[in-house]
């Protein structure tokens, strides 16, 4: 990925066929998988959970894609609304489990990296994920919707219920906080 948001040619036609035509769904899946996975990955702590949630997202999308209505908005925000809800459900359930099993958590190493994280050899990625993980959940959500999902501030505002200008300010502040967190020299081309 070079950071630019790729456009899927004939997206509407593919979406219309996807419920019954494997090739159409496969094209959509191949195009959106990295963006959905990256969105989820920015919001959860480990790769295994990101896999589970991404699978849920595409399962739900397949069940419902026949009901997608283009007149109500583009396909990408529709798909990322599913992704966002899947992550929110997971985080809510995780909070509830924490309440229910405080005893079980005692003695478990707190912030040890998961095996999947260890497998990421690229230090930049690890550093980036660690910095994003220190943001608030709302900031992580917006960062992920903007940079992983590639949505415009307007679409993010529609999904989150925030105003468009508020989305811009929160994103700006979050990136500035991240800039301080990570070693900015790595990306400073000057």
């Amino acid at each position: 990925m070079d950071g630019t948001v790729a456009v899927l040619a004939n997206e509407l036609a593919l979406v219309a066929q996807a419920a019954a035509e494997p090739a159409a769904f496969a094209t959509i899946y191949d195009h959106y998988f990295p963006r959905v996975y990256n969105y989820v990955r920015y919001r959860v702590r480990d790769a295994g959970t990101a896999d589970d949630i991404t699978a849920q997202v595409f399962e739900r999308a397949l069940v419902s894609i026949g009901r997608y209505r283009p007149e109500r908005g583009p396909f990408a925000p529709w798909l990322f609304a599913i992704a966002r809800n899947a992550v929110n459900d997971h985080l809510r359930a995780q909070r509830r489990r924490r309440w229910l099993s405080l005893e079980a958590l005692r003695g478990r190493p707190g912030n040890e990296p998961q095996p999947e994280e260890v497998a990421i050899h690229n230090e930049t990625r690890v550093e980036l994920l660690a910095a994003v993980a220190r943001l608030s959940d709302r900031e992580r959500d917006l960062i992920a919707l903007k940079f992983a999902a590639g949505l415009t501030n307007r679409r993010i505002a529609e999904l989150t219920g925030l105003s468009e200008s508020n989305v811009g300010v929160i994103l700006y502040r979050a990136v500035q906080r991240l800039r301080v967190e990570v070693n900015v020299k790595e990306w400073d081309h000057e």
């Binding site: 990925m1 950071g3 990295p34 996975y37 990955r41 990625r125 980036l128 903007k146 992983a148 991240l178």
Partner: peptide, 9 residues
């Protein structure tokens, strides 16, 4: 740019 370009998939 880095946030947008980083692909974990």
């Amino acid at each position: 740019c880095t946030l947008a370009a980083t692909d974990f998939s």
